[in-house]
Design a protein around this nucleic acid. Structure first.
Lengths: 111, 111
DNA sequence: ATCGTATATTCGAAAATGCGAATATACTGG
DNA sequence: CCAGTATATTCGCATTTTCGAATATACGAT
């Protein structure tokens, strides 16, 4: 894999690697929303949300559409959601794996 | 989505969000390798590689199997590779999208 | 026990990130 | 033009990340 591709991947991952930004991207699954609505729904300071949006915008994960006073944000490529879905699946697998390990331990102890 | 799940996702993404760590995970597609071989193949300082492995280990993305003097590392769940594959696809889509935009611009200019 | 090799950890400095407060910008209605 | 609202940016500070150098730990061979 070329270094530039690794760099690109790392930049996308970094952009998403924050609970708040994950929440934003997830919130936009329903469709475009204004920055204000996002802040309200997520219970964030206006400045803080704007900073996180700036990170997502810088990597083009999200785009803003100005409409008069406000800006409607949306996710540029639905593939981003697939990524989050994959992580959910990953989480479930880790959990079930941990449970299997626990059961093994109990079996051992009953011996 | 519960906050704890977002937290988990962010932790996995953070762990992967570095070109070197992506390279490590990618290198391990072929199967388990010792830390030494990884360092050599990637052209990294021993300490630096070990630090990155520590990050991946902390999040259980990678596991080490001790064998005498050395430690063989492997990726715990192949789903991680799917994640990287998805990012590759994402990259290609962004590129082709950018090219489409460029063509549109040229079409405009020829008018 | 001691030496050599493989790997991990600690340390110190530089850079990057995250946050709220304050300020700036852009647009709308009167 | 002015006031108000929505959003973005800047600033100062605390925390985290990253790196190489140095040091520590674990193991095998002699």
């Amino acid at each position: 894999m070329p270094e530039s591709l690794r760099q690109f991947k790392a930049e996308i991952l970094s952009a998403l690697a924050h609970p708040t930004r994950i929440a934003i991207v997830d919130l936009l699954r329903a469709g475009e929303l204004t920055a204000g609505v996002c802040a309200e729904r997520l219970g964030l300071e206006q400045a803080n949300l704007s900073q996180h949006l700036a990170v997502l915008r810088a990597r083009q994960i999200v785009v803003g559409r100005k409409a008069g006073n406000q800006v409607f944000y949306s996710v540029r490529d639905p593939l981003i959601w697939k990524l989050l879905d994959l992580l959910r699946k990953y989480f479930l697998r880790q959990v079930s794996n941990s449970m299997a390990v626990l059961e093994e331990l109990e079996k051992e102890e009953r011996k």
